[in-house]
């Protein structure tokens, strides 16, 4: 018997609502680039500008929603990349159990993990130019070792279980065996990690855009909004609070979901 986990559902609802609002940004709010220089730094609640306007008179709500697209794309995209690379390589390493390959992968893993993310992002932006997609790929690659470890560990743990050995003795085909026994064990653990990594990606994307390495102005992104707002901290603190809060809530919801899922998996085990 299982109680309904309201906290988890609330977090998921926040994530879905955020995604829907960002996706529908062009319908819900106006053009995020249009400047009204006669209406700068309007406070939230101003008619026509629910969340106010920035220093160039651009609608904050519109920039927040359009900026959310950038956050969602980068965080989900990088999680997806890490998930695909990490799970495939991790399961392969766990199944094949080739000593040499394992060592090589281990070294590759450690070197990716040891490399500072921001430094890597700077290098990537120097080579390919700054931009949202570059950040997504950088984070996807940086995150994949984490996923790899989980996938490999779960695979190794599964293949020594009695039911898996029996299934092999019974002559189940390898593909069916993987789908029946490996995937149900590996995927939930990977998802827990991915939700947590996606949360990290929200903050990192904002930080890199803040530093000018991510989304390029005048396109909206939360990191750029924070960077812009920095100088108006005394006159218009809401300009910092709004994107900061949005990034915080989104990252918190992802991390919270991840933790709740992890707890449930432990209880089930």
């Amino acid at each position: 018997m299982r109680r309904i986990d309201w906290g988890l559902w609330l977090a998921v609802a926040v994530l879905v609502a955020g995604a829907a609002a960002s996706a529908a940004a062009p319908v819900l709010a106006g053009d995020p680039l249009v400047q009204r220089l006669d209406q700068t730094l309007q406070r939230p609640g101003t008619p026509g500008h629910l969340l106010g306007t920035d220093a160039l008179g651009r609608d904050v709500l519109s920039r927040l929603l359009h900026g959310g697209r950038s956050s969602y794309i980068v965080s989900l995209g990088s999680a997806l990349i890490a998930g695909i690379i990490g799970t495939t390589v991790g399961m392969a390493a766990g199944l094949l159990r080739l000593r040499g390959l394992d060592r090589v992968l281990q070294v590759a893993n450690d070197s990716v993990l040891a490399f500072p993310t921001v430094l890597l992002a700077v290098t990537v932006s120097l080579v390919f130019g700054p931009g949202r997609l570059q950040v997504m790929w950088t984070l996807g690659i940086v995150f994949s070792p984490v996923v790899y470890r989980v996938a490999r560990l779960e695979t190794r743990r599964t293949v020594v279980q009695d039911y898996y050995r029996v299934s092999r003795l019974m002559g189940t085909r390898p593909v069916a065996r993987a789908v029946l026994h490996l995937v149900p064990n590996v995927v939930p653990q990977v998802l827990v990690q991915l939700a947590s990594l996606a949360a990290l990606a929200i903050g990192t994307e904002a930080a890199l855009s803040f530093l000018g390495l991510g989304t390029q102005p005048p396109e909206p992104s939360w990191g750029l909004m924070l960077n812009d707002a920095r100088r108006y901290m005394t006159q218009a603190p809401f300009l910092s609070v709004i994107p900061g809060l949005a990034a915080g809530i989104l990252a918190f919801s992802l991390q919270f979901s991840s933790d709740r899922l992890a707890t449930r998996l432990q209880h089930n085990a």
């Binding site: 906290g7 947590s196 949360a199 990290l200 929200i202 903050g203 904002a206 930080a207 803040f210 924070l226 910092s240 900061g244 990034a247 915080g248 990252a251 918190f252 919801s253 992802l254 991390q255 919270f256 991840s258 933790d259 709740r260 992890a262 707890t263 209880h267």
Partner: peptide
Amino acid sequence: VIGRRTGTGGMVILLGVLVLL
């Protein structure tokens, strides 16, 4: 039933955003 670990990750990120501010 959140364990001690639960939520702290989120808090760290929230703090990170505040530090950024």
